[in-house]
């Protein structure tokens, strides 16, 4: 297969970026999108040109490191997958593909397609945990939890922290990310005692870090590679309102 790639190049956070055009040939259908970029980069090395920087690690859709804006959509055209799970068979032969980094105020570009997502961890540090010291926990089966509750918590907890929800949001809001953590913990009895403080602290931190507000568009749910739904945002809002009382 043959493709024309329009890839965002940017030397550093304060440098002006631009699109660079590349042609790439002899790509097989079972090549993954990131492997296609590997091939491109190896071709660049052969010409002595600086390679395209992009984040990636596990390449099986679970670490959350990769994240490219492909043809205007985070993680590309398919639903329910990360960039590393996208295969070239998904694109028509000869097509032009535009590749950009996540674009959001809270995620400054580091270089090319690589962005700084540390703001997400800063939100978690505000309260995305259960305060229990190592060694103090009671026997695991002391507290039965219904299967449905656990599954609901697991649905929310599937978040891999890739930032696609932020990248796709017109407001640059991290609401789905925050909601998934708040929801995952506050559904469980272990997370209840801090539920109120957690919701307030995490939302406050999100606001403080330059993320936008949620206006219920729902594009985050559309683009989430782990199919996390806005129902969790509803739960977050409820937790938050209870706290205000």
């Amino acid at each position: 297969m043959h493709f024309v790639l329009k890839i965002w190049r940017q030397a550093g956070p304060r440098t002006k970026g631009y699109f660079q055009r590349f042609e790439i040939n002899d790509i097989t259908e079972d090549t993954s999108f990131l492997e296609m970029l590997d091939i491109l980069n190896n071709n660049l090395v052969k010409q002595g040109i600086e390679t395209v920087a992009f984040d990636h690690d596990c390449r099986e859709g679970i670490c959350g490191a990769c994240g490219l804006f492909i043809n205007g959509r985070p993680h590309g055209p398919d639903e329910g997958i990360t960039t590393c799970q996208l295969y070239m068979r998904r694109f028509p032969d000869g097509s032009e593909i535009t590749v950009e980094p996540w674009r959001s105020k809270a995620f400054p570009v580091i270089r090319d397609l690589m962005v700084d997502r540390r703001a997400l961890d800063k939100i978690l540090q505000a309260g995305g945990f259960i305060s229990v010291n190592t060694g103090t926990a009671p026997e695991a089966n002391t507290l039965p939890i219904s299967m449905e509750k656990v599954q609901e918590s697991m649905d929310a907890s599937a978040c891999i922290g890739c930032g696609a929800c932020v990248a796709t949001c017109k407001n640059g809001s991290a609401m789905l990310f925050v909601a998934s953590r708040v929801s995952a913990l506050s559904i469980l009895p272990q997370g209840k005692p801090e539920a109120c403080r957690r919701a307030r602290a995490m939302v406050a931190r999100m606001d403080g870090l330059g993320f936008g507000s949620c206006t219920n568009i729902g594009s985050c749910q559309m683009e989430c590679p782990k199919n996390i739904t806005v129902a969790h945002i509803a739960r977050l809002n409820r937790e938050f309102l209870y706290c205000k009382r």
Partner: peptide, 23 residues
């Protein structure tokens, strides 16, 4: 090994459970 499970449940790991709510 058993302490690990206890602690992880306390930290909020949604381990699979059966209908009775036990692990």
């Amino acid at each position: 090994s058993n302490q690990i499970i206890d602690h992880c449940v306390a930290l909020g790991v949604p381990f699979a459970r059966d209908y009775g709510g036990y692990l």
